[in-house]
Amino acid sequence: MNAFRFLGDMTHLFSVLVLLLKIYATKTCSGVSRKTQELYLLVFVARYLDLFTDYISLYNSVMKIVFITSSAAIVWYMRRHPQVRRTYDKEQDTFRHSVLVAATFVLALIFNDRFTFREICWAFSIYLEAVAILPQLVLLQRCRNVDNLTGQYVFFLGAYRAFYILNWIYRYFTEGHHSRWIPWIAGLVQTGLYADFFYYYFLSWKNNVKLELPA
C-alpha cells in the first residue's frame, strides 16, 4: 500500500460520502444522475465479489463494505425515499445505461486476465467504472444543474483519479513492469471523461455564479 493509493481510496470514499450526505441533508437529488449512481453500485458489486472468499486485509474488506453500502444508500434514496425520489430529474436522465453495461460486459468477455467468472466480472467492473460518469455528464450538459453536485464532490472525484494515476506510476517503477493494461487503459479513458465532466461542471458553476450576482 503506497500513499498515493491510500489517498486515492480516501478521496474516492469521500466523493461518495459527500454526495450521500448532500442528498441526506437536503432531501433532494436534482441534477444527480441516478443511472450513474446505479452503474457505480454495479461496479462495486462486480469488483468486490471476493469480499467473502479472499481476505486481503481488514482495510480492504472494510473499504469494500463501505463503498457498497454507501453507493447502495444513494441509489436507495433516489429510488425509494418518498421525498428525494420526487426531485429526481427522471425525464432528463435519459442515457441508455443498459448499453454501457452490455458493451463493457462483452469487452470483459474478450479482454480479461483469465477467462473465469471472477476475472470477467473484475474486468467488467474496471471497464464499467470508466464509462459510468457518462449519464451524469449528459445530464449536466443538458441541465447545467450543479445544486447537488457540490464542489467538494467534484474535487474528490478529481483527486481520486489523480492519486490513482500516481499510484500506477509508482507501482510501475517499484514493483516491476507487470502488465496492468486493463486498469491503465480504462483508467485513462475514465480520467478523460472526468476531465470533460469537470469542464462542464466549471461552465455550469460559472453560469450559476453569474446568475446569482445581483442584477
Partner: peptide, 10 residues
Amino acid sequence: SSKLPGHDEL
C-alpha cells in the same frame, strides 16, 4: 485471483 497485478486495489 487477487494475486494478479492490480487485483489488490479497490
